[in-house]
């Protein structure tokens, strides 16, 4: 981690009733780093992301972005993050473009309508949806809706993007691959700090600088795996397969 540290998660614990979901979890993320939180289904990855988005309060521990505590200085912290959701969560009565301007209207109401539209158009262009800007969500394919979801997070120009399994809701492999490539390209272009949640080893290896591997519940940090591969990555390369096998071995070969 050569770059400046931006996120610090320290001794984070969360319990739902008698179920200990996260147990004293700590890790750091550097500015501009692409970190994937990886673990088996139901291990508490999404809970961790929800805590990072301040949608859940931890029982213990802290989260900080550049020294700003997520729960003590909530508003300031929130201004530094944007979220790409697993399901696109688009407002059905707004067009693709209007869904993107919505993010600005909510977070920065002082931005004029014209400026918001201009910025939203740029974000829509970045995700390759210029021709579909005036379409309603129901008129778009699953992959297109996810691109709008991505554009809505991009337009905020926040320091950190939290992505909660953005490919999981897509059925078609081609759509998944396309969007995975888009995310990789956008990261290289914008160099935002990304925390990406997935239970797919291949997504994690393809996209990240580092994989934070979590155990099954109660979730603890198993290992942090650096991915020293150049981009664009080839998942069938020997080096990628070696990393994949190593991660799989951490779960006794039960994951892949």
């Amino acid at each position: 981690m050569a770059d400046r540290e931006i996120i610090e998660v320290s001794r984070l614990s969360k319990r739902f009733g008698s179920l200990q979901v996260i147990n004293s979890l700590s890790f750091r993320v550097a500015q501009g780093e692409f970190v994937t939180i990886f673990g088996p289904s139901g291990c508490g990855k999404t809970t961790l992301l929800r805590i990072l988005a301040t949608l859940e309060q931890p029982d213990q521990g802290t989260i900080e972005v550049n020294g700003v505590n997520g729960f003590a200085r909530h508003e300031e912290y929130k201004g530094k993050i944007s979220v790409v959701w697993q399901d696109p969560r688009l407002l059905p009565w707004r067009t693709a473009l209007q869904n993107v301007t919505f993010a600005l209207e909510m977070r920065y109401p002082e931005v004029s309508k014209g400026d918001a539209k201009q910025q939203a158009r740029e974000a829509i262009k970045l995700v390759g949806l210029v021709d579909f800007a005036d379409h309603l969500p129901r008129q778009l394919s699953g992959g297109m809706r996810q691109r709008v979801n991505l554009a809505r997070a991009l337009v905020l120009d926040a320091d950190i993007m939290l992505m909660d399994e953005p490919l999981a809701s897509l059925n078609e492999i081609t759509e998944k691959r396309q969007l995975m490539n888009e995310i990789a390209k956008l990261w290289e272009l914008k160099r935002k700090t990304i925390i990406y949640v997935t239970h797919s080893v291949s997504e994690a290896i393809y996209l990240s600088d580092r994989i934070v591997v979590l155990s099954d519940k109660p979730t603890v940090l198993l290992e942090q795996v650096e991915i020293p591969l150049s981009r664009p990555r080839v998942l069938t390369s020997a080096a990628a397969e070696k990393i994949s096998n190593h991660i799989s071995e951490l779960f006794g070969g039960m994951i892949g």
């Binding site: 988005a53 399901d87 909510m106 905020l156």
Partner: peptide, 27 residues
Amino acid sequence: STLVEMATVLTSNGTRILKKVVFPMLV
């Protein structure tokens, strides 16, 4: 509620959420 949650990550201003998300949903 997922749309309301999406909006709460963008702002803590309840009136803005009511105006731009909850009321339009009730149209």
